[in-house]
Design a protein around this nucleic acid. Structure first.
Lengths: 196, 196
DNA sequence: AGTAGGTTAGTCAAACTTGGCTATTACGCT
DNA sequence: AGCGTAATAGCCAAGTTTGACTAACCTACT
């Protein structure tokens, strides 16, 4: 868990601080930690004795805030977790693959257009990151943050080339079917006709 | 929803068929559809009137199987969903980013080793895909399946280069800290000492 | 002084996901 | 014939995630 690492780093902290830090990293996008999950996670980790409550203070009539810190057991577990993430590749789930697997369901022109558009979006993302690097924005961040961006850029570059290439193929009208099948009216084409 | 697309494609189908098809695509890895989710999804989609039950037959003492097909409303919704996936880029959540954000928590040699290892794993994955392409394995699949693989390969290539480059940087001992900060004993280093 | 709008801190029910479980039938092997 | 294994079909309780909501406080402007 991400949360454990953050608590270790920022301890002693209360939930709201963790939440703000995560949002400032836009971690809600690349980890799956929405605000609502945080408090649950903190309680669960405490139950497992990886965290420990420090104080519960209340300021005025606002909700009481509980502060947590990590336990030795938690430190150990975090070390394990981290190692796991570093050494193992877990294939990530990308909804674009789902789209891709239903490729024949959209008309060729649209698929090609969507691919070009995708390439464009990726290019724009890369450029804005490059821009941020040029201006000092990154100079204030630790190196690993910069590297994170560079990783995204690297992945995106591969994908841009792919998008353009496949868009070309789709436009060129190559058959989607495996070689040995005879082309003809497929299920998909029938569907298209129904929707329109 | 992925399930909706499959039902449309295979209709009329019962849950178990969908499950097998998804597993045969290893869709449990890149979509989040584990066997258990399928029946729930089917019922929910039926409730929303995107699907419709066709028959419920029973063979011997086995659980009765219910067959579903898509409704016109479902067809429409699927069309929308698909367009969304094609035209919008949704940043994917990758636990490796989490690892990366806690980079200073591991000793340099280990980070470098893990990165080299990662590059190696990615290379191996790419090679095995290339191999599968050479042998006829792909010839039986529709083109979009091949393209899907090529997309993974393309992304991986970018990442391999990145891994090697960053591994080099880490080994070279560059500071993780932003330029204007003075190097010194950081929080992280103190942690390392505690764990060891 | 009043009030609109933001910040602080956390709760909660509803939705979703998981993966292990059941119980039957079919198949392969000795 | 007997036995172990695999396939068939789906259920369900437990665990997670979500995002909308509350309710007080602060501050800055008119």
């Amino acid at each position: 868990m991400m949360i454990l690492g953050l608590v270790n780093w920022m301890q002693p902290v209360h939930g709201y601080d963790v939440r703000r830090e995560l949002l400032s990293w836009s971690a809600d996008k690349w980890a799956n930690v929405q605000p609502g999950s945080i408090y649950h996670a903190l309680r669960k980790l405490t139950e497992e004795e990886l965290l420990r409550e420090v104080t519960t203070e209340q300021v005025g009539g606002r909700p009481a805030r509980t502060t947590y810190e990590i336990t030795p057991k938690g430190l150990d577990e975090l070390d394990n977790l981290l190692r796991g993430y570093w050494w193992e590749i877990k294939p990530v789930s990308d909804p674009f693959f789902a789209a891709l697997s239903f490729l024949p369901a959209l008309p060729r022109e649209e698929v090609a257009a969507a691919l070009r558009n995708r390439a464009g979006q990726l290019r724009a993302a890369n450029e804005s990151m490059a821009l941020a690097a040029e201006k000092g924005w990154l100079r204030e961040k630790p190196a690993n943050v910069t590297w994170m961006w560079e990783l995204m850029v690297a992945r995106n570059e591969g994908e841009i080339a792919w998008c353009d290439r496949v868009a070309g193929l789709v436009e060129s009208g190559v058959s989607y079917l495996p070689e040995r099948m005879t082309p003809g009216v497929t299920e998909w084409e029938r569907w298209r006709q129904q929707v329109e």
